[in-house]
């Protein structure tokens, strides 16, 4: 049935091509960045992750929560890999609400590595109220929650422009050419030199956007490096076993085929 196989192959090819086509609707195509974590052996750039955490902490964290991360994650393999002391110091720099104590009162204490990231607002409604009615989305899985992923987040961060003539913007709405609908309620918070990187990297808008996007990509997929590593091993194993089974199959079927 060579014909059957060939036709099926083309059909499958057509489906995949058409699904690619699906992804390209509606907004300006995000800028394609050559991320270090792309590809089957992709890894995060440690230094970029650490810088990205700094940008998050100093810029994003005042509005955006990251409620599914813990401070201990910052020291885990495959992530920014801060040292144990650094993680403890980072955690301790946050005030965590704990309790109730024996009197039934809630109290605050310095954070510990096992604590979840402290949210800037007590709940969604408070977050929206503090930000002109627009809830700043939780950033734990933001990269996975946006079509275009890391490229899209990066593009939005660097995509602020003056609105083209004829586009009217309400109070508290900004023009961004990569955002769906081109209107965004988050102001452009990045400007050159905004943060002072400990490793001396120049904090240009582009650099900060790349770093924080890398950090967010890790936050969304902290298992990425382990997944890639295990995946390569699994594929090698499967291919080896497939070859062995194929040879065994040939041997076994030769008993029949030789009789034919």
């Amino acid at each position: 049935m060579k014909k059957f196989r060939k036709k099926t192959f083309y059909l499958i090819l057509t489906i995949f091509l058409s699904f690619n086509h699906l992804n390209s609707a509606e907004m300006t195509e995000p800028i394609k960045v050559n991320w270090s974590f792309k590809g089957i052996t992709g890894k995060f750039d440690r230094a970029s992750l650490q810088r990205g955490f700094q940008v998050y902490k100093e810029v994003c964290a005042s509005c955006h929560s990251m409620q599914y991360l813990s401070y201990r994650n910052l020291g885990e393999p495959g992530g920014p890999e801060f040292s144990e002391e650094e993680v403890k110091a980072i955690a301790a720099s946050f005030e965590v609400t704990d309790g109730p104590d024996s009197q039934g009162e809630m109290f605050t204490r310095p954070g510990r590595p096992s604590d979840m990231f402290v949210s800037p607002h007590p709940n969604k409604e408070a977050a929206a109220a503090a930000n002109g009615g627009a809830y700043p989305p939780d950033m734990s899985v933001l990269v996975k929650a946006r079509k275009g992923g890391a490229n899209y987040i990066y593009s939005v961060l660097v995509g602020y422009e003056d609105p083209p003539p004829g586009v009217k913007l309400d109070q508290g709405v900004y023009y961004n050419k990569y955002m769906i609908g081109n209107k965004i309620k988050m102001p452009n918070n990045l400007e050159d030199g905004l943060v002072e990187y400990a490793d001396g990297t120049a904090s240009t808008v582009d650099q900060m956007a790349k770093d924080v996007t890398t950090f967010l990509a890790w936050a969304a997929e902290p298992e990425l490096e382990e997944r890639h590593k295990l995946g390569v091993k699994v594929l090698i194993y499967l291919i080896l076993l497939t070859i062995l089974v194929y040879l065994s199959m040939r041997k076994i079927w030769s008993r029949i085929d030789s009789k034919m």
Binding site: L238, L241, T242, V245, Y246, S248, M249, I252, W253, I256
Partner: peptide, 11 residues
């Protein structure tokens, strides 16, 4: 005969 063929396809 069939098990080994199935195994190959499954892999």
């Amino acid at each position: 005969y069939i098990t080994i063929k199935d195994a190959f396809a499954l892999l």
